[in-house]
Design a protein around this nucleic acid. Structure first.
Lengths: 178, 178
DNA sequence: GTATTTAGGTCAGCCATATTGACATATTTT
DNA sequence: AAAATATGTCAATATGGCTGACCTAAATAC
């Protein structure tokens, strides 16, 4: 597998700002195909429950950020209140997410995952993790760090700090369970 | 950056089928955010022309596979004839793609990029390539090969050969120009 | 203590991109 | 001549976005 790789990026004449090189066609296409396959695992599992990709995203970030405010979720997902409402409602109605009044600010409807929601989110994360760890296994010893470095560098420079805060925050596990 | 990485995949007790490890939350989330930012470059550029992501995909694969058959494009993109028709028509009408009768099989409408189409496809590929090469620069010496290995390993095992054929085929540059 | 702002919800309508099923036409194959 | 193939198209539907408008309840400002 590793032998059909060094294709594009002909050696650049050193010391120049690189002249209009050839586009990196293979990675452009592979990003498309790989991402499509990556999300298809969860898509298929969710379809059997009548949910879609949008529900998955909400479920995921509520699971990773218990007690998240609606406004924060809108910012993370970069969607509108209306779009969130349409996918959040079924998740609440079917018992995957609950909303609780904020204790200091009672206008807020903080979002928490239920046990059923956590189980579903974990099942979907399993599918994605299996694929990712299979791919990491094809890389060297620092596979996880390398993949992370690459993906972080692919982010918009602007929003990079925000995204890293989200990815980090999710580790500490925001607020308590309801 | 490299020091907050080794989170998941605790050393497995050897000889077991791995017990339910923790999901790789950071890479799951980074794939979402990175892909969103990755496609946003082209999305924004296309929006000014009244095109969307679907048009981009058609434009890209016609550009990379001149003379491609409609049926092949449907297979590559995994969409239906109807969906293709809706995005292909504007591309033809506005002079980015042309259709020519197949020379051996006159039922076929082989798809070719025009000069304007090639220029647009190249401009979009530039945007994506700039982002990718910026990210590769954060990696070690075998950055391109490493990224490719990772992405190929992320593909469905089933379709992997097909995808690799597509990615390879695009290099040789299918048929002639119209 | 009223006025304004904020957090969230909701209604109505629109757009882009996908789907299915049915059918039509031209051409090739059997 | 009949059947299969390549492509196109009509109609209807689903999903997941969007905007604009408007509502309630609660917090904050004056």
């Amino acid at each position: 597998m590793a032998d059909l790789n060094t294709i594009s990026s002909q050696p650049q004449p050193a010391g120049h700002s690189p002249p209009p090189r050839e586009p990196i066609w293979d990675l452009i296409e592979l990003l498309f195909f790989a991402y499509r396959d990556f999300v298809s695992d969860a898509d298929d599992a969710l379809a059997t429950l009548g949910f879609g990709r949008a529900h998955h995203r909400v479920l995921h970030f509520v699971n990773r950020n218990p007690g998240v405010k609606v406004a924060d979720l809108l910012e993370i997902l970069r969607i509108t209140k209306q779009s969130l409402g349409r996918v959040l409602k079924p998740l609440v109605d079917e018992g995957y997410v609950v909303q609780r009044e904020g204790s200091t600010d009672r206008r807020q409807r903080l979002l928490y995952i239920t046990q059923a929601g956590a189980a579903l989110a974990m099942m979907l994360a399993r599918l994605q993790t299996d694929r990712i760890s299979g791919a990491l296994a094809q890389l060297g010893p620092d596979a996880h760090a390398t993949a992370r470095t690459f993906l972080v560098a692919m982010l918009d420079a602007d929003g990079r700090a925000d995204v890293l805060r989200i990815v980090e925050r999710a580790r500490s596990g925001g607020v308590s369970r309801p």
